[in-house]
Structures are given as C-alpha cells and as structure tokens.
Write a protein that binds this DNA or RNA. Sequence first.
DNA 1: GTAGTATTCAACCATTCAATTGATTACTGT
DNA 2: ACAGTAATCAATTGAATGGTTGAATACTAC
Lengths: 238, 238
Amino acid sequence: MTASERRFKDAIYEQFARIGKAVSSPKRLELLDLLCQAERSVEALASAANLSTANTSQHLQVLRGARLVEAEKNGLHVIYRVAEPAVGEFFLVMRSLGQARLAEIEQISRDFFGGEKDFEAVGQQVLLERIREGEATLLDVRPAEEFLAGHLPGAISIPLPELRRRLEELPRDREVLAYCRGPYCVLSAEAVELLRAEGFAALRFEEGDPDRQLRGLPLAFGVAEAEPGKTGTIKTRF
Amino acid sequence: MTASERRFKDAIYEQFARIGKAVSSPKRLELLDLLCQAERSVEALASAANLSTANTSQHLQVLRGARLVEAEKNGLHVIYRVAEPAVGEFFLVMRSLGQARLAEIEQISRDFFGGEKDFEAVGQQVLLERIREGEATLLDVRPAEEFLAGHLPGAISIPLPELRRRLEELPRDREVLAYCRGPYCVLSAEAVELLRAEGFAALRFEEGDPDRQLRGLPLAFGVAEAEPGKTGTIKTRF
DNA sequence: GTAGTATTCAACCATTCAATTGATTACTGT
DNA sequence: ACAGTAATCAATTGAATGGTTGAATACTAC
C-alpha cells in the first residue's frame, strides 16, 4: 500500500469516526433521542436530560460538528433539531442493534419495568387495526410539542402532567394504550399506573424494535383539533 | 423525574454508548470494514490496516466488548468476524449517513480519485443486467478469501496482485467492470489503471451508496469453480 | 520438552474528553 | 440605555483513550 493510499484511508475513516464520536457519549445519545422526538431549545434539552446548560451546549456542538443536528437562532433561544430524517433512522438502527446484541439492555429494562412486559404480545399491526375499529384508545402522553411534531395516527394527546385532571376525555368502555418516546421512556409506564389506579384498562405500548416501521407508517403531523361530535376528545386531522 | 428513573435512563444510554464508542475510532472502523468483507486473524487485520498486532488486538477487544464482533480460537490464530449481519447493516447505514452529511468525505474522495468519477453514471440495476446479458465482465479484485465469503453474482475473481499475469482470462471484446470493497477501497482503481494500460475498456464499479441494496440483492457465496467451456474463467456457482 | 509463532496482557505516556465554574456575548422588553 | 435571560466561551479538573513497548500466555511443529 502506498503512503498516499494510507493517507486517503486514514482521512476517510477519520471522517466517519466523527459520527461515531458524536454517538459515543450517553448524554449525547439522550439529547439526540430527545431531538428525534421534536426540536428544542438548549434550555429545554438541558432540563429534560438533567444537565447544566453549559454542558448541554457543548454536547450539542459536538453533535453539530458531526452534522447530525442543526441549530437555528430564534430570538433569545437557539433551537436545535436533527439535520435530516436519515439521522433519526441511523439512531434507530443503532438502537435496534443494541437491543439485538447487548443483553444488558434487556436486563436493565426488565429490572426497571418489573418484568411485567405489560404490552408486547400484541403485534403492532393488530394493535393499530383495533384502534381504528374503535376497540381501544391510543394515548400519546408526551409533551404537546412532541405530539405536534409527529405522532401515531389516531392517537390523542394528553401530556402526562395533565392526565389526572383530563381523565374524562378518555372513554371508559375501551382499553387505553399509552405510548411515549419509545421503549426506554418512562412516561407511558407512569400513565398506565395512574390509569389503572383510576379503574381504566390500560396497557403500555412499547413501540420497541418496530419504531422504524411505525414511524415509517402513516405518521400524523400538525395541529390537533377538538372533534365537535365526541366528548371533547382531541383527534388528529388526517 | 425520580432518581430511579434517572438511573435507569443513564444506564440505558450508557449501554447504547458502548456501540458508539466502538465505532468512534477511525482504526476500529477500518477493522470493522475489513471484517464486513470476510473474517480474519488478528495478524491479517493488523497488516491490512497498518497497525501493530498488539494495537489491533486491543481495538478488536473493544469491538468485541460492544458485541459487534466475535472471536474464535483456531489453533495458533484467533479468527475475528462480525457477530451478525445486523452489524454490517449498521455499518452501512452509518457510512451512508456520513456520505449524506459530511461534505468532507466526498471532497477527500474526489481529491484522491482525481475527480474522474470513472464510473457512477450507470445505475446498478442497468449494470447488473448488462453483465448478465454478457455485454460486460464483472471483476472482483479483492483477495480470494473475501470473494469466497460473498460476492456479487456473476463476478469473476482475480485478486489484484494476480491480475497482470491472468489477463488472458478476461475477454477483450467486452468492457470490464472492476469492483472491490466499496467506494473507499483503492484496489479497483488500481485494477482499472492496469487494465486500461493493457488496452481493456475498464471502469471502476463504485458500489457506493447502494452497497446496501447490492448486498441485499442476490449475493453469491462459496467456492468458485472453473467453467470448462470457457477459457479458464472462474465463475460463481448459482 | 524446546523453539517458534500468534495473541494477549501490563505498564506507561501523551492526548483527548466530560463536566464544572465563571465570564462573555447576544438578544428582548422596559 | 438597562436589566434580565439564553447560550456560548474559556479555563480547569480528573478520568478515559490510543498507542508503544516488552513480558506473558497459548498453541504448533519438531
């Protein structure tokens, strides 16, 4: 191998390593995960990930250095977002590789969620059909902004902190399927706990490995609006 | 957020970061790239990547720690291989993300290959059809072991070092399309140079972004065997 | 067993990295 | 202009990393 060939290879792999370095820190992965849900300000990211603002800013600049995220100045705030959908897809591939290869992940998950594996048995296709046929209510418990940035079709949005005082929006004669950011987000677990305590039949929709397909499936965007016919339930515009 | 939730998240993201750390070093990426072509001993990897054996061994152990590769002791040698196909797919997704987002990569590539972009215009589908119809010869110039571990269907194998003395195996009335490990491997570029000097019509098959699809397409494996009818040309068994 | 080879281990240095702290810049509303 | 807020920058700390070197281990061939 000539010296110039080696220089070329070194240069090329060093470039690709920029992406690897960007996703080699747990905190940056958490930030990236959040950004895959919706764009956010530095401050919002910092509080969501339990980091100092300065530290968050530095991590975001590493992510930006690898061109995974972009920043836009909006008045007093700087809004970060993933640079393009391919970034989210990469993140999901990486996550699913981790799920496939790292037994520790399932172990940690099981330890935390208590091995109940609440939901999991029902296939996602079946699930979505049941929701369309009105046998179940799909509930998105993430913050409203994330719902607005994209959600599963047919889902209604009640952010977890508002859930207790908005229970009457949920029909009591159907099962509630709560979902949030993915298999490692705890919002839906808390929602299910609360709903069950209130007498609902509630399951956690894990949105696990199939995140990809689900997000590939018809995703709904935009503003949610009240449906006049029903009891104040927020439904998505299709 | 409760303390236990935070611990859970930290633990989970730390696990995923293991994969990120594994692919955050240029050298490890080069090793992984080589392993995606075919399994190899530490020594073979070290010499292919211009590293000391000890250093290679350490990098491989990092990759193994992230469960991306597996090692098997075979007599005096330790053979490393990618743990499962999903690893190669992840690597390709990462590479294609880099190609999409990092302008530097195309720049470095152009600088090295001289901007000729030898091949690129012809779509891969078209290309493969032309090969099947006998209008072109598809030539794999990688080492024989890599060819045996998997190659494009219809390709014949002549490792670059043997090319000069095996030119008579290539029909002179057809175009030769040489390929190697991918868009950043220089073997095929050298092959094209040699072939053109010898009066062949030769193009480099870049196997760029579409690596995925190509590798997803019918890949041929196993032992190559001589075809009695033709002039000693090695063809793949289908 | 002995010699020789492939790999890993252990100790070491230089560099890089994550996170904290305090200062600085950029913008908004009054 | 001034105060207040969001974000970044700069400097520092301790920990982790990449790479080298030389010794130790595991296996093969004789």
